[in-house]
Amino acid sequence: MQLMKIDKTLYRSRLNIVIIACIASLAISSLAISQTLIFLLPDESGSHFHWNLLGVVVSSIALVAGLVKLKSHPKMREVAYVWDLKQALNLIYRKNKKLLAAAEQGNPDAMLALQFSYEGSRQLWQLDDNTITMSSLNAAQSQLDGWAQEYNVQLDIANYRSESLSAF
């Protein structure tokens, strides 16, 4: 995955549309399914919890399937990019301790993965207006820059490949 420049205003407006559409479709479809099941198969005791639960589960599955199908739509480009970026950063985060130890020893692949993680996190936090922890990110970046200078490693995130994480 490569980092892309994203228009924050466009991303936020499209994300809000996706969120509102998801909430509305989940509410409407789960109610429609559960009420249909209650009408067709009423329970003598008056408890319809299982039909309500089934309506929510079926609606959730349909919603996820719809989102996956719509992921490649041009209007979903920014939202899908952030979704993919979060998944890529999560893969790196799971191996963070090993990556930090290897980077400290001068491993260029570990340093490149950390550089991608820091730049991706910075972009993500700026898109979501989550700049509270930016100082800790800057400190980690300074530490990585020191290792890169010490071991004479050039960190170009265009060369980052997620497959390199399998070594850690």
Rank of each mutant, 00 (worst) to 15 (best):
L3G: 01
M4R: 14
K5Q: 11
I6A: 02
I6F: 03
D7G: 01
L10V: 11
N16H: 12
I19S: 02
I20V: 09
C22K: 10
I23A: 11
S25Y: 14
L26H: 06
L26M: 13
A27M: 13
A27K: 07
S30W: 08
L31Y: 14
S34I: 02
Q35S: 08
T36E: 03
T36G: 08
I38R: 06
L41G: 00
L41N: 07
P42T: 09
P42A: 08
D43C: 03
E44L: 02
S45V: 10
V56Y: 12
V56N: 13
S59Q: 02
S60Y: 00
S60D: 00
S60L: 00
S60R: 00
I61P: 00
I61Q: 00
G66F: 10
G66A: 07
G66R: 07
V68N: 09
K69V: 00
H73R: 10
P74R: 13
V79A: 07
A80Q: 06
Y81F: 14
V82N: 13
K86E: 15
Q87E: 11
A88W: 02
Y93K: 12
K95D: 04
K97D: 15
L99S: 07
L100D: 12
A102C: 03
E104Q: 11
N107H: 06
N107P: 01
D109I: 00
D109K: 15
L112D: 10
L114K: 12
Q115V: 06
Q115K: 15
Q115Y: 06
F116M: 12
F116I: 09
S117T: 08
Y118A: 08
Y118H: 12
N130V: 05
I132H: 15
I132Q: 15
I132P: 05
T133M: 10
S142Y: 01
S142P: 01
D145E: 13
Q149P: 04
N152S: 11
D156S: 14
I157W: 05
N159W: 05
Y160T: 01
S164P: 01
S164Y: 04
L165T: 06
L165F: 03
L165H: 04
L165Y: 05
F168R: 06
